[in-house]
């Protein structure tokens, strides 16, 4: 109560997400052919630890406190994780998208939700082709359930987290046709 989104908001997100996926398909070939920066080393599909570090950063992965970076040196993506840039996600085939989704959902099963995780989950969902393979179907249902569990436990009403969790639940349930997991209209 008080956390779930309106039906109108959910419908807007589904429409927006559909447009985003169309644009992604339109621009995929362009971004796939762009050179990656020299510091971007994408792990192999089966390298679970490598992908967790790649997406979330060594700082979060290792749960160690590090001193703030010197701003003059710019962002160290090895430490903070690489964001889901088009030049990166456009290179991922469906098997890799599904594998990385699995790794990050597994991570989320034990760790708190973070904006970095939210961005990657959204990007991977945008890359996930329909009709879903049975494995992907099960994975995204697991993801929506975990989002619901975490949302219930949000005590400080961190608006950004609630919003992000609502977004993921909405896309899984209403874009990927898992309507039994959808938030009821409020």
């Amino acid at each position: 109560e008080g956390y779930s989104p309106t039906l109108k908001w959910q419908q807007q997100q589904v429409a927006h997400f559909s447009t985003v996926r169309q644009s992604l398909n339109k621009h995929r070939n362009h971004w796939r052919s762009q050179n990656l920066d020299s510091n971007v080393a994408m792990p192999k599909s089966e390298d679970e630890e490598g992908w967790k570090k790649f997406c979330l950063g060594e700082r979060l992965y290792s749960e160690i406190e590090m001193l703030p970076d010197n701003e003059d040196l710019g962002i160290d993506y090895i430490k903070v994780g690489f964001p889901p840039l088009l030049s990166i996600v456009s290179r991922m085939d469906q098997a890799t998208v599904t594998s990385v989704l699995e790794y990050l959902i597994s991570w989320f099963g034990e760790k708190p939700f973070t904006p970095e995780l939210g961005r990657w989950l959204y990007a991977l969902l945008a890359c996930l082709e329909k009709p879903l393979l049975p494995e992907a179907h099960s994975l995204i249902r697991q993801l929506a359930r975990r989002c619901s569990e975490v949302r219930v436990l949000e005590e400080n009403k961190n608006e950004e987290n609630i919003s992000a969790l609502n977004l993921i639940i909405c896309l899984v349930s209403r874009y990927f046709d898992q309507y039994d997991l959808a938030d009821e209209p409020s």
């Binding site: 927006h16 644009s23 762009q34 964001p83 840039l85 088009l86 990007a123």
Partner: peptide, 27 residues
């Protein structure tokens, strides 16, 4: 909308996510 533009930059998915998350506050 930016998603329809030919200038869909490298951070387009991140921007789309941030926009969607921010929209909940305004709903």
């Amino acid at each position: 909308q930016s998603e329809d533009s030919d200038v869909w930059d490298d951070k387009a998915l991140i921007k789309a996510y941030d926009k969607a998350v921010a929209s909940f506050k305004d709903a």
